[in-house]
Nucleic acid binder design. Structure first.
Lengths: 133, 133
DNA sequence: GCGTGATTACTCGGATACAAGATGTCCGAGTTTGAGCGG
DNA sequence: CCGCTCAAACTCGGACATCTTGTATCCGAGTAATCACGC
């Protein structure tokens, strides 16, 4: 029960793209170097974000990845769901007749976490970082 | 990023012990049958709960597992922490100078989930089940 | 100067390798209960 | 009837075996920009 490193890479990559004022595509090599990951692995992660519709990839020379949505629409939850999947964190596969009460409690707890992640946007962090400098 | 099956087994086992009015030790075989798990595997899980101090094991004939604390003191979070560990779900190992803002957001979200799990006690479910019958 | 082709700098996707953790099994050792047996 | 011994019913703990998942690499294919070259 841990968030994967891939999620960490995805969040940091998205944040750096949000901070970057120029909307030009950024090569995966540049992004990978900043986080000390192999470019090929990072590209695998980023294709998930592309499929989720929050990035687009520009192929060819001077290609790379670029944001599609407006910066203030991207929440933590979007990114996490794109990488980790949207399935519930806890699933009881038992057959104790009706609904599993334990499952209900777990889902409630999970929902509270997701609410916080849905309310927090990447642009909020960008603003905070600027203020700090 | 999923809760392990072991957590599910642990929660169900604890719940059935809380419901059971007699405070006699219950053999692992009985507990395992109810959940369709192998007894040896379940005992591995339960020893974690013993080490966490919420169960005690009685060895020998007619032995088994028994609650140590009062029933209304056992929260979901206690059990989950005993099985999954208490480490943070998200850890950024990067060196971007100061504290990682992303990490902060993730920890805040996690804290909200934990708060709900800490407030919910097994005895609450037991009461709900009785009412439902 | 201008088109055309080759080169270069990229991403994409699949196949594969590797490591770690979750899941589960097996077995020997220790512990208590209870039954059986001898005095 | 009492006490001793022994078997049975348990848990405990470590050592394995297996399976899934996360992490990561490699390579061939496709694509767009740029450079080189010939006209």
């Amino acid at each position: 029960m841990k968030f994967s490193k891939a999620t960490n890479y995805a969040l940091h990559t998205m944040l750096s793209l949000v901070i970057d004022p120029s909307m030009k595509p950024v090569g995966v090599q540049v992004l990978a170097e900043a986080q000390d990951v192999s470019p090929t692995y990072l590209s695998k992660i980023l294709t998930k974000l592309v499929k989720a519709g929050m990035l687009e990839s520009v192929s060819g020379a001077n290609g790379g990845y670029r944001l599609t949505r407006k910066k203030d629409e991207i929440t933590f939850l979007d990114i996490i769901h794109a990488i980790e999947g949207t399935a519930s964190l806890f699933e009881c596969h038992f057959d104790h007749g009706e609904e599993c009460l334990i499952q209900q409690v777990m889902v409630e707890a999970e929902t509270k976490m997701e609410l916080h992640l849905k309310q927090t946007k990447l642009i909020d962090l960008a603003a905070k970082m600027k203020a700090h400098v």
